[in-house]
Amino acid sequence: MNSQNQSIIIKTAFRYAIPFIFLYAIYVLTHGEYSPGGGFQAGGLMAIIVVLSRLVEGDKAQINISGNKAFILAGVGTFIYALVGWVTMAFGGNFLSYSFLPIDVADKYRHQWGILSIEIGVTICVMATIITIYDAITTKGEKDAE
């Protein structure tokens, strides 16, 4: 994909759409407790930003996470989720029983922090996985490069 051939309409629309998509992703993530939505959807929205950037700007994508980094991030996201469970276990509770999180607030808010933490983990995992898959199916092979 050659970035010089893209029309200025696509480039400008892309530039104006990105902040709103990002804001909406953050909203879906943090508001997931009160309304439908949550980590999986927010991860999809965040991945859309990177995929759009690659589609529009080609090789010179400014908002970019390379395939290898995304691969690592997917593991990190899953690890954050499991880490919350292990922390609650270390402080004497069952796996993922948020009442045992070491935060000095009321029990109800400890649950809210726990839910938000695992949603962030899910978001990172889903975002990075989508980017990884997109990267895997669009990378040029050796024969194409020659």
Binding site: Y34, P36, G38, Q112, I115
Partner: peptide, 13 residues
């Protein structure tokens, strides 16, 4: 759970 949404409470807690 402190979550006003049943779905989230069941899914994430």
């Amino acid at each position: 759970t402190g979550s006003k949404n049943f779905v989230t409470a069941v899914l994430a807690d």
